[in-house]
Design a protein around this nucleic acid. Structure first.
Lengths: 213, 213
DNA sequence: CACTCCATGTTACCGCTAGTAACATATGCT
DNA sequence: AGCATATGTTACTAGCGGTAACATGGAGTG
């Protein structure tokens, strides 16, 4: 088997794959997470079976699409997390980076959060990476950073992972709600969330007359 | 117009509606969130159009179903939140109650978290309350409790709502991950999450030699 | 009793979706 | 040339949410 042939064709296939992904991206950006395979194929100027040959099934296409955006977002977040500043500033920068990303492209964001829900095909579905790959990846990533950088004593791995997923979930839920209602500026949201992580809930006083909290 | 007849019929309709909801519950418990209207109708011993007459569309049925479970869960959480103990103990009890609930019925829980994703019908879909009603309700509820009970100074409403949604998101994401991987006991998870809310992330020291966090 | 009203129930259909089989065509390697 | 490989098509299946049209059975009224 000659290598040249394989390489040539594979390059062509990869290029095509990238073009298809970009078309899919445009459609998702326009139509949201419910974008159909037909619509994506039409945007790419082709028909459905080609998409299926490249990506297997809808889940495959969505996974490939999600990976691109997730990688990009993760890169931004890592930059914020690695900035030369103290811990509080870095946490705030990371929160702000995430919120800015979902604010800039809400459609993509909605797609990333609910990628595997678009079908009636539940049995026979490979339940491996199904629910919210972006959140899981972010959680694991943050867990790793935490465990690398702070001293959590014994059980540090477990603690770091719980915190990683917990913080990511906090960021996500607050961001989702904020994106829908826009109750305050991004900077303010960041500050309030950082206050929460800094233990202000434990520190503030009970309201007078109430049952306490 | 006679009142007796109307009441009679309405009672009958309500009884029927409850039966249908219980059948739907069984199916969702068995088949997960992707349960089809056909399956639910079959379980109830009838056919689709009756479901549609009672609930309008799939979203209506799912909303009614979700409301039942959400109300039940909210009642448990409120009880934990109102227990006579100090703030930390109450927060831990609330976290534990939530985690115990999702641990006991993972199928129902998955359904509650992703109720409105089961169809191809995105245009024509009333995008009102679509994404994750349970999380939103929990967030708002917690926000209200927080604002009632602790003294947050000016902007207390905004702060309380951000915290409410943030904490609920933290609980949800950590619970989701924990339910999938079971990396530790429930009690341990609760303790680690409460530590996070109590500001331990801000308090712990950098690891020696690292870039700091 | 006949007559209307209303809810319950059915069958049969629509338009849409994800996914596939069968067939046609070009391009490049041997 | 011949062969493999990737690209492309049309035409189809099975299942979904949702609806129209029609049938039935009991409550209240002349």
């Amino acid at each position: 088997m000659d290598t040249t042939q394989r390489t040539e064709q594979q390059r062509s296939a990869d290029r095509r794959r990238r073009e298809l992904l970009e078309a899919a991206d445009r459609v998702v950006l326009r139509d949201g997470p419910g974008a159909s395979m037909n619509a994506i194929a039409a945007e790419a100027g082709i028909t459905k079976p080609i998409l299926y040959r490249h990506f297997g099934d809808k889940g495959g296409l969505y996974a490939a699409l999600a990976k691109r955006h997730t990688d990009a977002l993760l890169a931004s977040l890592r930059a914020a997390l690695d900035a030369p500043a103290d811990r509080r500033e870095r946490v705030e920068a990371t929160l702000d980076t995430y919120l800015a990303a979902i604010e800039a492209r809400p459609q993509v964001y909605r797609f990333l959060m609910h990628p595997a829900e678009g079908g009636q095909n539940d049995q026979g579905f490979d339940v491996g990476v199904h629910s919210a790959p972006l959140l899981r990846r972010l959680g694991e990533e943050l867990a790793q950073v935490i465990e690398e950088r702070v001293d959590l004593g014994p059980d540090s791995e477990r603690v770091a992972r719980v915190w990683g997923h917990g913080i990511v979930g906090m960021m996500h839920a607050a961001g989702d709600w904020w994106l829908g209602e826009r109750p305050c500026s991004r900077a303010e949201l960041v500050r309030i969330l950082a206050d929460l992580l800094w233990g202000r809930l434990a520190a503030v006083a009970d309201k007078l007359g109430g049952p306490g909290f």
